[in-house]
Simulated assay, not measured.
Amino acid sequence: MKKILFALGLSLTASASFAYNGQIDGGFTYFDHDDSITDSNGAFDLSGTLYFNPVNAKYGPLNEAAFLGHNSNASLAYSYNYWESKNIAGFEQDNKINNISASIEYFYEQFYVEGALGFSRENEQSKLNGFKVADEDYDTTLYRALAGFMPMPNLLLAAGIDGYQGDGDNDDNRFAVKAKYVAALDHGQALNLEADGAFGDTDTVMLGADYYFNPAFSLGAEYSMQDDGDDDTDFFAVRSKYFIHPDFAVGGAIGFGDDVIAFNINASFRF
């Protein structure tokens, strides 16, 4: 027993100066719709990030270590979203969206650059009495480029473009802004504030805040809005993340929108 406790003590001591070179994130979101059409709707997300230099997680919230250390990185992400309708008088429809993207963040002293490029394919199928009556694919290319500046420690302000080009009349080149600030509080606590917006034919806005009770545990909230000129949707979520160990975290969120509730679980692994 003493050997086990000694080994645990060494592990905890080592974690105080933990550094990592990469991170893998994965999650699943289930959407519960309050309508007479949707049968099921969910989304899987997976991403991997490699840092150009080791991230030191010794100071501040573990979840903000890369930002606080100005660690440049490159990442790949994949997401899969599905929606299936109920059988209504023999008619059924389902949509599947596969999206893959690559992005980079680069910090140089007080300057910041972000770039991303993605490809999305949506498949829409319709059936009548079990027979396929439609099967269409829609492709979309997504892009994002931002340049920013850090006027004071732990505050980032950035602006640029965020857009997409797709099949048919599905194009939008938008002005984009981004802001993030991590403030240290007393007794190892901290506050994260972030905002992201893109404005064009379709406007999107995200506002988020997280309170860190200690470096390992946070509780936060997020508000998002989308307006395409005809319809606007609002979504509010409560989120939390806990690092069981500096190299492993679990998280979750519950969100509320127009006639929909979303439940998310996620995990992060660092190496």
Score class of each variant (00 low, 15 high):
Gly197Ala: 09
Asn56Cys: 04
Gly208Trp: 10
Leu191Tyr: 01
Ser224Glu: 00
Gly200Met: 00
Gly163Met: 14
Phe199Cys: 02
Asn56Tyr: 06
Ile24Arg: 11
Ser240Glu: 09
Ala66Thr: 02
Asn87Thr: 06
Thr204Trp: 01
Asp203Met: 03
Ala253Cys: 03
Ser101Cys: 05
Arg239Ile: 13
Phe256Gln: 01
Ser103Asn: 13
Leu46His: 01
Asp32Lys: 07
Asn53Phe: 05
His187Cys: 04
Asp25Gln: 14
Ala102Ile: 14
Phe213Thr: 04
Asp94Asn: 12
Asn56Arg: 03
Tyr164Pro: 03
Gly115Trp: 04
Gly220Asp: 01
Ser218Ala: 12
Ile24Gly: 11
Leu68Pro: 09
Asn214Pro: 12
Glu84Leu: 08
Phe91Cys: 09
Thr49Ser: 05
Tyr212Asn: 03
Asn63Cys: 02
Ala179Ser: 11
Leu219Tyr: 11
Leu193Trp: 04
Ser15Gln: 14
Phe269Ser: 06
Val260Tyr: 04
Asp167Glu: 06
Ser17Gly: 14
Tyr20Leu: 05
Arg174Glu: 07
Phe248His: 07
Phe213Glu: 04
Val205Lys: 13
Phe256Trp: 09
Asp227Met: 00
Asp203Cys: 00
Asn73Val: 04
Phe107Trp: 15
Arg121Lys: 12
Phe6His: 11
Val177Lys: 06
Thr141Ile: 15
Thr29Tyr: 01
Asn173Asp: 15
Ser268Lys: 04
Glu84Thr: 14
Ala65Glu: 02
Glu194Cys: 00
Tyr211Ile: 05
Asn87Phe: 05
Gln93Ala: 11
Tyr59Glu: 15
Ala43Pro: 08
Leu219Lys: 11
Ala145Asp: 02
His245Lys: 15
Gly60Phe: 02
Thr204Ser: 05
Ala184Trp: 08
Pro215Cys: 05
Leu128Gly: 10
Gly26Ser: 04
Ile37Lys: 09
Ala221Asn: 03
Phe52Tyr: 15
Asn53Lys: 12
Ser79Leu: 02
Tyr51Asp: 07
Gly118Gln: 03
Asn192Ser: 15
Pro153Ala: 03
Gly251Ile: 09
Gly229Asp: 05
Arg121Ala: 02
Gln93Cys: 01
Gly9Leu: 07
Gly60Ile: 00
Asp171Ile: 08
Ile104Cys: 09
Gly60Arg: 02
Asn266Ser: 14
Ile244Ala: 14
Gln110Phe: 12
Glu124Phe: 02
